[in-house]
Amino acid sequence: MSHLLEIDSLSVTFGGLHALKDLDFHVDEGEIVGVIGPNGAGKTTFFNMISGMVTPTSGDIRFEGESLVGFDPNQVTQRGIARTFQNVRLFANMTILENVMVSQHCRTKQGIWGSLLNTSGFRKEEQEIREHAEKVLGFFGSRLVGFRLEQPASVLSYANRRRLEIARAMATSPKLILLDEPVAGMNPKESVELTELIGKLRSEWGFTIVLIEHDMNVVRDVSDRVVCLDHGETLAQGSFEEVSNDPAVIEAYLGRPLEKKA
């Protein structure tokens, strides 16, 4: 059976620097895959490449059997891959509701004429967009709904911004969500809660998830499989236990043990 997302010997170089080297990777439908690795390992570049923001130098990315190389980010999202950003990038001056409504753009189709003539199709679609948005926001409990709907995203706390980013990604109705450090900057209680929610994203909403995370508790709790990257290469792959006990991984994180240094 073919994989949902399949990546073949993907490489990218920035001015002679290998950000990613011959990377092979795959995700099956319904999986949650954790991507770990020290800073500068190429994790975010990896996401940028899947989502079309960076064009690979060589290699291939296939999603549901279709190659994504050369697509614009919007075309990638259209095909069912959504993402969040490591340094939360909301539309800060749009309301929370609008943030989520706008990301349904590629799933809706009413154009100028519909809105000018205020056709029934237009009104129906607006209604659906709004309902879907509220449903998605409701996933995070009462935090992002109610009076918050009409507030600008810029007034949200850091944790809520992260949640809103996830909501925005969910609203694009993707098959695969790429989460870039979803719990960074959250306190332990919040990250435990978000970990549960990530589980629910799969069980209740049916999303396949790839997440980059530094918090190993989160990675352990949600991932079916863990991939460790370093210097743009796959260092280890497998269950969390296997990867976390892999000597190469430990070395990449902690450095070479002292006595082995020649």
Partner: peptide, 14 residues
């Protein structure tokens, strides 16, 4: 990335 050159013909728009 908006000015990224395309490697293949995929995703070409009008």
């Amino acid at each position: 990335m908006t000015t990224a050159t395309r490697v293949k013909g995929a995703g070409r728009t009008n």
